[in-house]
C-alpha cells in the first residue's frame, strides 16, 4: 500500500523538504558554479553583514516597511469583500447579479503580467487615461502614473483590489446562500427592514468565515508574493515597491549574493512559521478548532 503513494511523497520531499538543506548555504559564500564543496565556509558572516552596515540596515528597514504596509493595507481592506457580497446579495435582478459576478471575478484569473500590460495601456504616458485627459484639455503634459515614486503603496493596493475583490466576495456570497432563511423570515415578521436584516443577521453570520481568513492573513504578513511587485517595479518606484519577497529575489538572483538571500529566505520562513503557529493557537483558544 505504502509503495504506491511513495513516488508522490518523494516529490513532496524533494521540492518542499529537501530545500531545507539549502539553508546551510547561509553559512557559506555560495557560488553555484563551484558547488557547496568548493565554496568557502564563512560562519555567521552574512548575518553580521545584514546588521553591521548602516546602509544595509536602512535598506532592510525600508523593505520591512513596504512589506508590512502592503500587508496591513490588505488587512485594512479585508472587510470590503464582505460588504461587496452583502450589497450584491441585495440586487434583485438575477441576470445583473450574475453579470456583475462574472465581470468582477475575471481579473482574478489573469496573470500579473497581463495586469501590468493593462496598467501600461491605460496609464502609461501615451495610454488611454493620459490621451483622454489631454483631448479634453485637462492636462497638457502627460501625468506619470507608473514611472513615479508617489503613492506606490496605494497604487499597488488598488491593483490588488481590482484583481481580487470580486473573487474574494464569492466565498461570502456562498456563505450568504447557506444562511437559514427562517432567520430572515422571523426577523421580517418582527418588522425588521432590509438594513436591519443585513446588520443583525447577514453580517454576524459571515463573521466566522471572515475571522478565519483574517487570522490566516495575519500569519501571512511577510508573504506578499513577488509577481505583482516584480512586474510593476521600475527605476523610479523601486524604493517603495520592494517587499521582502521581491527583495530576496533581487538580492539573490539579480544581485550577486545567493548566500545573503538565503539568510533572508530562512529568517522569513522561520518568522512566518512562528506567526502561523501563534495564529493557530489563538484560533484554537478562541473558537475551539485549529485553522491549519
Amino acid at each position: 500500500m505504502f509503495f504506491i503513494v511513495l513516488p508522490f511523497l518523494l516529490l513532496v520531499f524533494v521540492f518542499s523538504y529537501l530545500p531545507l538543506l539549502g539553508w546551510v548555504t547561509a553559512f557559506y559564500d555560495y557560488k553555484p558554479a563551484l558547488g557547496l564543496g568548493g565554496s568557502e565556509f564563512v560562519g555567521w558572516m552574512w548575518f553580521e553583514i545584514l546588521v553591521s552596515s548602516e546602509t544595509q540596515l536602512k535598506q532592510i528597514g525600508q523593505v520591512m516597511a513596504n512589506t508590512l504596509a502592503m500587508s496591513f493595507l490588505g488587512i485594512a481592506t479585508s472587510l470590503l469583500p464582505v460588504f461587496f457580497a452583502m450589497l450584491l446579495n441585495e440586487v434583485r435582478a438575477k441576470w445583473f447579479r450574475n453579470a456583475v459576478q462574472t465581470l468582477t471575478t475575471l481579473p482574478n484569473f489573469i496573470s500579473w503580467v497581463l495586469v501590468y500590460m493593462i496598467a501600461f495601456s491605460l496609464f502609461s504616458t501615451s495610454g488611454l487615461v493620459n490621451t483622454t485627459l489631454h483631448d479634453w484639455g485637462l492636462i497638457t503634459v502627460p501625468m506619470k502614473f507608473l514611472d513615479t515614486d508617489q503613492h506606490v503603496w496605494l497604487t499597488m493596493l488598488a491593483w490588488s483590489l481590482w484583481k481580487g475583490l470580486g473573487w474574494g466576495a464569492i466565498m461570502y456570497l456562498a456563505a450568504i446562500a447557506g444562511i437559514d432563511q427562517s432567520l430572515y423570515e422571523s426577523a421580517r415578521i418582527d418588522g425588521a427592514n432590509r438594513f436591519q436584516l443585513m446588520r443583525y443577521i447577514t453580517f454576524p453570520m459571515l463573521m466566522p468565515t471572515y475571522v478565519v481568513l483574517l487570522v490566516l492573513s495575519i500569519a501571512n504578513i511577510l508573504n506578499n508574493g513577488m509577481e505583482q511587485y516584480y512586474v510593476f517595479q521600475n527605476a523610479f518606484n523601486r524604493e517603495h515597491i520592494q517587499v521582502l519577497d521581491l527583495y530576496v529575489y533581487n538580492v539573490g538572483l539579480t544581485g550577486n549574493s545567493l548566500s545573503l538571500a538565503t539568510v533572508l529566505s530562512m529568517l522569513k520562513s522561520l518568522v512566518s512559521l512562528a506567526l502561523l503557529l501563534a495564529a493557530n493557537a489563538i484560533a484554537k483558544r478562541a473558537r475551539g478548532s485549529s485553522i491549519i
Binding site: 513532496v12 524533494v14 521540492f15 518542499s16 523538504y17 529537501l18 530545500p19 531545507l20 538543506l21 539549502g22 539553508w23 548555504t25 555560495y30 553555484p32 500569519a219 513577488m226 519577497d245 530576496v248 529575489y249 539573490g252 538572483l253 545567493l258 538571500a261 538565503t262 533572508l264 529566505s265 530562512m266 522569513k268 520562513s269 512566518s272 512559521l273 502561523l276 491549519i292
Partner: peptide, 14 residues
C-alpha cells in the same frame, strides 16, 4: 507544505 516552505532561494538552489 501548504503553510511552510524553505524559501525562494533554497528552492532555487535545490
Amino acid at each position: 507544505t501548504m503553510y511552510f516552505n524553505a524559501g525562494l532561494i533554497p528552492v532555487y538552489i535545490t
